[in-house]
């Protein structure tokens, strides 16, 4: 038995990914749940517009972080500010009593704002936009689309590619007369198509079963999904290039998937996280897809309103996918520099 225990420890010591899961993951989870697993909102980004904006802004409780006032703005401007995700709450003082437009697509922020404004009684009228009944499913399902794409893109894709390496057929592909681009596109395209079908299916089911509105452009949603897919497929390919077995690929994918689930604002609101943890969230692609999917589906946002998540996601797609393709090309090891006899050169 002693020998068995010793053997197991020796194997574990050399299996760095399992060690990472055993040692790093609990620490990461502890930190995340300590600093990020928080539904309590301490600050709400707020704008105040209309003739009494300065007075009302000064009278607001500390919870409402007023980032700007505009005495000349109209009620429509106030609603646009919410739609464009400039602020979570916009108070319009041109009405009597002032109207607080609350972004219902930021569920926990909206719940907190609704409760805080409710304590003011008749002094303010609260209008929750885009999710008037504050349904959890309305916020979760658009984000869930991103999670499913992440799952397919990272775990399924990396497993599919590592299977080729593990079976020794990657070596076979490397010496077949296929261009590296043929192999890469041929390997990735099926997952891209499957993930796209899944995205369509989950979105349609979400709209049909949960009655979630689809207020924006389906094309913009599809564009966001496609860019996000390039990022997650790229991550999947990168994982496959550093994994020798499917087990290793799954372990690595889980290590990458966990922070995305917990820190992308999908479950815990970004506003409630400690600043350092929130910045980790800002480095994760799912954070930006969640912003796009909730923005397009619930708020009906256009590209102008979503330029930031689109720009960041496109940058991530370019960097990650290029790195993935380059690393995968290296694995296919083209036979550059080989000296061919004259006859073979003519035939080639």
């Amino acid at each position: 038995m002693r020998a068995m225990i010793l053997k197991e420890f020796r194997e574990l010591r050399r299996d760095r990914r399992t060690l990472a899961m055993l040692v790093v993951l609990p620490v990461v989870l502890l930190v995340i749940f300590g600093y990020a697993a928080n539904f309590t909102i301490d600050t709400i980004t707020t704008r105040v517009v209309g003739p009494q904006s300065d007075t009302v802004a000064a009278a607001l409780p500390e919870l409402f972080d007023v980032t700007g006032t505009d005495p000349d703005a109209t009620t429509q401007d106030a609603q646009d500010l919410v739609q464009d995700d400039v602020a979570d709450v916009v108070i319009d003082t041109s009405t009597t009593p002032p109207t607080a437009f609350v972004d219902g697509s930021s569920l926990f922020v909206a719940q907190t704002a609704d409760a805080a404004l409710g304590r003011a009684g008749d002094q303010v009228s609260v209008e929750i936009l885009y999710n008037p009944d504050l349904e959890t499913s309305w916020v979760m399902v658009p984000a869930l689309v991103g999670l499913i794409l992440t799952f397919i893109g990272t775990i399924i894709t990396s497993i599919g590619l590592v299977r080729e390496r593990q079976a020794g057929t990657l070596e076979q592909l490397a010496v077949m007369p296929l261009r590296p681009s043929d192999v890469i596109i041929g390997k990735i395209a099926p997952y891209f198509i499957l993930a796209s079908v899944d995205m369509l299916l989950v979105t349609l089911l979400g709209v049909w079963i949960f009655g979630i509105p689809f207020n924006g452009s389906p094309w913009l949603f599809a564009l966001g999904g496609a860019i996000f897919l390039f990022v997650v497929l790229g991550i999947g390919v990168l994982i496959s290039t550093v994994s020798q077995t499917q087990g290793q690929a799954i372990q690595t994918a889980i290590l990458i998937l966990m922070p995305q689930i917990l820190l992308s604002g999908f479950i815990f609101p970004l506003q409630a996280m400690a600043p350092a943890i929130r910045w980790i969230g800002y480095c994760l692609p799912l954070t930006y897809f969640v912003k796009i999917s909730q923005g397009v589906m619930l708020r009906g946002s256009d590209l102008a309103a979503l330029w930031l998540p689109f720009t960041v996601l496109t940058g991530m797609a370019l960097v990650v996918f290029t790195a993935a393709v380059l690393r995968f090309r290296r694995d296919l090891a083209p036979a550059a520099g080989r000296e061919m006899p004259a006859e073979a050169e003519v035939r080639a």
């Binding site: 079976a167 020794g168 057929t169 077949m176 036979a335 061919m340």
Partner: peptide, 22 residues
Amino acid sequence: TVAAPALPEIGFMPTTSGVWRE
């Protein structure tokens, strides 16, 4: 130096047999 025909004229069987099991 390696003298070999172009890839389309090489047949390769790796140690792991290189067949697609699925």
